[in-house]
Design a protein around this nucleic acid. Structure first.
Length: 274
DNA sequence: AAAAACTGCAACCGCCAGATA
DNA sequence: CTATCTGGCGGTTGCAGTTTT
C-alpha cells in the first residue's frame, strides 16, 4: 500500500501530456526548482503522479535536452559504452550531455541493435554472430542420420574428425581426444577456412539434450561419452570460443561453424570433458 | 484509396535501494 | 528493526505517424 495511495484518492491522468500540462509543470519547476516530486502535482495543479511529472521533466521538458537525431560521434560513443556497460542506460546517458537514458534506450532498441545485427554482430556481446537456430537444427538433423554424420568435405577425412585433431593438438587433448596422427594448426585453419564444418562437440551436446529429458540414469550413463559430464549451455558456448581461440581463428564466421549462442535456455544441458 | 504492417518514441510498470519515520 | 515513502532504473507497452501492400 502507501505507494499508490495517492492514485487511489483521486483519479490521476495517464497517457500523453497535453501542452497545458507541460506548461504547468514547466512553470512550477522553473519557479521552485526540482524538489520533492510527490508534492509537485498538487502544487503545480496537475492530475498526475509525481513519478509521471519527474519523467516528463527529465525526458522532455528539461531545458538542457538536445533532441534530434544522434550524430555519428554519439552513435560511436553509445556503441563503445554499451560494449562495456551493457544495458546501463543511465550510465551511458551520463556520458552524453543532453541525452536521456530513455532516448538512448529507444535509439538502441529501434536502430543500433538492428544495425549491428545486419553487420552480423551480436548486439549483446558485440562479437560476430556465428550461429542461428536453423543451422543448429540442421546440424542435429545431420547427426540423426548415421550416413550423413559428416558433411561433405574436399578432404578424405571427415571434417568433424579433422577438427577433433585440431582441438586435440591445440588443447593438448584437453577438450577432445583423438587417436589419429597430428596436424598442424596452420594447415587446419587454411584447409577449413570458408567451409561448412560439423561441431565436434555437438555429438556430446545432442546426447546431453536427450539425457536431460530422460530420468533413467542408466540410459544416461550409456549415452554419455566416457569422461564427460553435464555443463550449462553457457559453458558450451564458452568452450567453442576457446576452441576458436586455440585454432587462431579470429573471425569464426570464416569457419561457418554453428554454435548455440543465440538460444539461451533452449538447450540447457550439454557435456564437457572432466 | 484503404487496410495492414511497420517504426519510433513517449510513457508506464515493476522492482530495487536508500532515506526516513 | 520494521514499515513506508521516494527516486531511479531498465524493460515493456501502446499509440501515432509512416510505409507497404
Amino acid at each position: 500500500m502507501g505507494r499508490h495511495s495517492n492514485s487511489v484518492k483521486q483519479k490521476l491522468r495517464k497517457g500523453l501530456w497535453s501542452p497545458e500540462e507541460d506548461e504547468k509543470l514547466l512553470n512550477y519547476i522553473t519557479r521552485f526548482g526540482v524538489g520533492c516530486w510527490s508534492s509537485v502535482p498538487q502544487h503545480a495543479g496537475l492530475q498526475r503522479c509525481g513519478k509521471s511529472c519527474r519523467l516528463r521533466w527529465i525526458n522532455y521538458l528539461r531545458p538542457d535536452l538536445k533532441r534530434g537525431t544522434f550524430s555519428q560521434q554519439e552513435e560511436n560513443i553509445i556503441l563503445d559504452l554499451h560494449q562495456v556497460l551493457g544495458n546501463r542506460w543511465a550510465q551511458i546517458a551520463a556520458q552524453l550531455p543532453g541525452r536521456t537514458d530513455n532516448e538512448i534506450k529507444n535509439f538502441w532498441n529501434s536502430c543500433l541493435k538492428k544495425k549491428l545485427m545486419k553487420q552480423g554482430i551480436d548486439p549483446n556481446t558485440h562479437k560476430p554472430v556465428m550461429d542461428n537456430a536453423y543451422a543448429i537444427d540442421k546440424q542435429i538433423e545431420c547427426f540423426d542420420k548415421e550416413s550423413e554424420f559428416y558433411p561433405s568435405s574436399s578432404s578424405s577425412m571427415p571434417v568433424a574428425v579433422e577438427l577433433e585433431h585440431a582441438f586435440h593438438i591445440n588443447n593438448g587433448g584437453v577438450m577432445l581426444s583423438s587417436s589419429s596422427s597430428s596436424m598442424e594448426t596452420g594447415s587446419i585453419h587454411d584447409t577449413y577456412l570458408s567451409k561448412s564444418v560439423c561441431d565436434p562437440l555437438l555429438v556430446e551436446f545432442k546426447s546431453g539434450r536427450e539425457c536431460s529429458s530422460n530420468t533413467n540414469s542408466s540410459n544416461m550413463n550409456t549415452s554419455l561419452s566416457a569422461g564427460f559430464q553435464l555443463m550449462t549451455f553457457e559453458g558450451y558456448v564458452g568452450q567453442w570460443q576457446h576452441h576458436m581461440h586455440d585454432l587462431h581463428v579470429n573471425n569464426t564466421q570464416d569457419f561457418n561453424i554453428y554454435s548455440m549462442g543465440s538460444l539461451p535456455g533452449e538447450y540447457p544441458d550439454v557435456f564437457h570433458q572432466t
